[in-house]
Nucleic acid binder design. Structure first.
Lengths: 331, 331
DNA sequence: TTGTATGCGTTATCAT
DNA sequence: ATGATAACGCATACAA
């Protein structure tokens, strides 16, 4: 690999002059510039970004950590984030933890070692102190650590409210919500709070069933769904992320439960998994594009030392009405 | 950020002694080691990988370039590749081109600048010379440049043969194959060759319709499918990647075409998009895990200077039989 | 066992 | 307009 000094030698100048041509950082005589550009071409020279990064204390890379790259929500989000980063002149390093705490911790350690400039955390199973001890710009998704670290999150409370209304309209009495872990800092759990608040006030039963996102095994979801529906015939409403929601629809069909007549299903996320389904699924849609845009906006501001925006960034969800829920109670 | 010299100062030793403790590269007195480890802890020291990489001429990062991170096939593959890389001690940098040639070229340039050690090319729209001029280990997916650059590819010819058999069994007479571009170096086109060879020998019409992978817009696929089915009522067989295949199934249902009675559909890839469908879709399955394993095996061998394996790595596809095709011609 | 000197490739500062 | 020098943080060869 040709270095800047090889180019300098070939063009009969000092290395720093080559550097000046490279960066346009100072005026160089036209004739000298030509010689240097010629030499760069002949040597097929490309600057070493490692050395550059070392000098500038900046790698030009942002890491994103997710539970699974395959997961449709995270792959859609990562796709958008990469696009945003590209526009801002950064590269993305996408890593996945498989929801394994040790791997998350290990990656966080790697990220501190100057290989990346900042991190988007799409997974967060460590203790708050560990995020607070991270000494670089960090943006958390769906997880509030404290008042300092920026967080980008969908308005899950509204998501829960919208879903609750659908269940009420459908006259449902026994709801199961397939969801993530319950912890005060896990903001997506707000959807469950809202659901429960509204529905139990109307005497509707709501039960949470916790699963891990990274157990991203559709057949497993399908078995779970079948088991739940068979063991609990009184269940008449399901809220779940796109993938488990689809699993319930498939399970319902297999055991002969009619949707939406005897079972209402609301999917949560709105990835292409709902689009590709033959049914038109009622869905709470997270604004993936806006999440990506806001996350990178906040992170790049931090990276480039611009004034900080508010730490809490909440974005609107929307309801897409399909026919896996009933619009009105038949009277 | 504490540097190795800060640690050295605190522990009253020279920097190289700290380095020795870090790497276990030479014996250090037990008491000295303790002092150093203590100092590292107190300073919350983490080695600077940029500096390390600069010295070692190695970044510990492998790039993967794909047309779209969202695409279920590529996100599944990227997920596996990341796992394989992690096991081998490398990080992955995942980038997408949106099938834009300029972006692919730009990324290739970035990848040469010592920021990554090698590249997995999941997209390849440049001229062969550009890949040949790349001076680092490269593994191409589905694309043969020459006899030197390693390529990992599914046995698409067999894929085409398996599909052709299904169409023959179903008595289909007019097939449409939704596929990528036709070029000698694009190996996935072999499936089309095989399909045509076998079917036209039996007097079955086969027509190729080219689409771009990155136009990853399900509604667009759906419109296309509806248009094709309505304008060509004689069509009785479809082969397409998972996503467009599902679009055809949805379109068929919308315009009242019966599957598999009057329309057979074979999906190609076998991502979870077919799993999540309510129908049981006949599918040619690419061995994603094996592709990832072989790709990284070959690449890491190159990176670590081990003897090169054969350049051509072809992996077996399999048929998963569903009920979007007929098993026997009703006589 | 430990320390000194040097280089990896780049760029900023200061000098000419 | 151009060059010499030093520094970024680390790891090696060599010396002590």
């Amino acid at each position: 690999m040709a270095s800047i000094r090889d180019v300098a030698k070939k063009a009969n100048v000092a290395a720093c002059t080559v550097s000046r041509v490279l960066n346009g950082s100072a005026s160089v005589a036209e004739e000298t510039r030509q010689r240097i550009e010629q030499a760069m071409k002949e040597l097929n020279y490309i600057p070493n970004e490692l050395a550059r990064g070392m000098f500038k204390q900046r790698a030009g890379i942002v890491a994103m950590l997710v539970p699974s790259i395959r997961h449709p929500f995270f792959s859609s989000l990562a796709d958008q984030i990469e696009k945003e980063l590209y526009q801002q002149g950064y590269k993305m390093m996408l890593c996945s933890t498989g929801d394994d705490i040790a791997r998350e911790r290990e990656y966080m350690k790697t990220f501190r070692s100057n290989i990346v400039d900042g991190v988007i955390m799409g997974v967060s199973n460590l203790k708050d102190e560990e995020y607070e001890a991270f000494q670089k710009p960090l943006v958390m998704l769906d997880h509030k650590v404290n008042e300092e670290i920026p967080v980008v999150v969908s308005d899950h409370r509204t998501g829960g409210i919208l879903a609750a209304q659908k269940f009420l309209e459908g006259g449902c009495r026994n709801i199961i919500h397939i969801c993530g872990l319950d912890a005060p800092e896990v903001l997506s759990f707000q959807s469950h709070r809202a659901l429960e608040e509204i529905l139990s006030a109307r005497g509707v039963q709501v039960k949470a069933v916790e699963i891990k996102w990274s157990n991203f095994d559709f057949d497993g979801y399908l078995e779970l769904a079948k088991m739940i529906l068979e063991k609990n015939p009184e269940i008449d409403g399901i809220m779940a992320a796109d993938l488990p929601a689809v699993a319930f629809l498939k399970a319902a069909r297999q055991i002969g439960r009619k949707v939406p007549e005897t079972l209402c299903v609301v999917a949560y996320d709105g990835t292409y998994v709902v689009d590709t389904n033959l049914l038109d699924i009622t869905t709470i849609v997270q604004p993936v594009k806006e999440i990506a845009n806001r996350s990178i906006g906040v992170l790049v501001d931090l990276l480039e030392g611009r004034p900080a925006k508010p730490a809490m960034n909440m974005l609107e969800v929307s309801l897409r009405e399909g026919n896996t829920t009933k619009s009105r109670i038949p009277s």
